[in-house]
C-alpha cells in the first residue's frame, strides 16, 4: 500500500511546550484507523497536523501530492441554531463556484449523496430538525462531496446512542470498502475502537499502533490513560474494563451495609 500521510518525528504546539511530540505515524491509502487516548492527549492537534492546519515545530508531515482530505467535525461543535438547510450545508464546501444557487449537476450530486446516506428528501430541512444519526450523516455528505481520498472524523460517535453508533459505523465501513481511507478519533474503546482494523493509542505521542488485539493491552492502556485497565477477550474481540473499580464497589458496599 502506498502511504498517503507520513509523520516523521513530528512535534506540534501553540507556543510553549509541544502538545504532541516525536510522532511517527504512517497512513496508507484506503486504511481505516482509529486513534484513542484520554482528553487533552493531543488527538485533535494530531488531526490538525494531519490536515495541515497546524504546522510542525519539529519533524515533517508528508502528504501524497494532490491528496484530497475531508474533515468531519464533532457534532457538538456545530451551531444548531444557524439558519442552514441540509442542502445548504452539503453545498457550502463547493467553493470553486462561490456564488449562490446550485447548478443542475451540483443538485443531482447532492441528491445522489443524500440518497446514498439515507437522507433522501431532507435537503430542505433545517439541520436541527434531524435525528442524531442523520445530523452526523449530513456532515459526512458535505465531506464526501469533495470526493476525498481520506476522511478525517473527530469523535464521530461522541454523545450518540447505540443505534446511531451502529448506523455511523456501517456507513463508514461502506465508504471504506469503496476505497476511501478513514481516520477517526474516539473515546469509545469497546463500542467502536475494538472493531477497527487498526488502532493507535495516543498520548502526546504514539504509545502503540496495530490491530486491536495487539494494542488494547493493559500495559499500553495504562501508559495511554494513566490508569489501570483490564482487558478481557470475548468472541475474539478485546473488551476493556476499568481496573480499579473493585475498590470503589467494596467501599460503597461497605457503606450500604453499615
Amino acid at each position: 500500500m502506498t502511504s498517503l500521510i507520513d509523520f516523521v518525528h513530528v512535534a506540534c504546539g501553540y507556543g510553549g511546550s509541544p502538545v504532541i511530540d516525536d510522532v511517527h505515524l504512517s497512513i496508507a491509502r484506503g486504511e481505516f484507523v482509529g486513534i484513542v487516548g484520554p482528553s487533552g492527549s493531543g488527538k485533535t492537534t494530531l488531526l490538525r497536523a494531519l490536515l495541515g492546519t497546524v504546522k510542525p515545530v519539529h519533524g515533517t508531515v508528508t502528504r501524497e501530492p494532490n491528496v484530497r482530505l475531508a474533515y468531519v467535525p464533532q457534532v457538538e461543535t456545530v451551531d444548531w441554531n444557524f439558519p442552514v438547510t441540509v442542502g445548504e450545508v452539503v453545498l457550502m464546501t463547493r467553493t470553486q463556484r462561490p456564488w449562490p444557487g446550485a447548478t443542475k449537476d451540483e443538485l443531482s450530486q447532492v441528491e445522489a449523496l443524500l440518497e446514498r446516506l439515507g437522507l433522501a428528501g431532507l435537503a430542505k430541512r433545517h439541520i436541527r430538525e434531524l435525528s442524531g444519526g442523520q445530523q452526523q450523516r449530513v456532515f459526512l455528505a458535505r465531506a464526501l462531496l469533495q470526493r476525498p481520498d481520506l476522511l478525517v472524523l473527530d469523535e464521530p460517535t461522541s454523545g450518540v446512542d447505540v443505534r446511531t453508533r451502529h448506523e455511523i459505523l456501517h456507513v463508514l465501513t461502506d465508504l471504506n470498502e469503496e476505497g476511501i481511507g478513514i481516520v477517526l478519533t474516539t473515546h469509545d474503546l469497546n463500542g467502536l475502537a475494538a472493531h477497527l482494523p487498526r488502532l493507535v493509542c495516543f498520548n502526546r505521542t504514539v504509545i502503540a499502533d496495530g490491530a486491536p488485539l495487539a494494542v488494547l493491552r493493559p500495559s499500553f492502556l495504562e501508559r495511554t490513560y494513566g490508569a489501570p485497565m483490564e482487558v478481557l477477550e470475548h468472541g475474539g474481540m478485546p473488551v476493556v474494563v476499568d481496573g480499579n473499580l473493585g475498590d470503589f464497589s467494596r467501599r460503597l458496599k461497605a457503606k450500604t451495609a453499615s
Binding site: 492546519t53 456545530v78 453545498l91 457550502m92 462561490p98 449562490p100
Partner: peptide, 12 residues
C-alpha cells in the same frame, strides 16, 4: 457567497 457562508458557519 459560499466561502463567506462556510467561514461563518464552520470556520475550522
Amino acid at each position: 457567497y459560499r466561502p463567506l457562508l462556510f467561514a461563518t458557519f464552520d470556520p475550522d
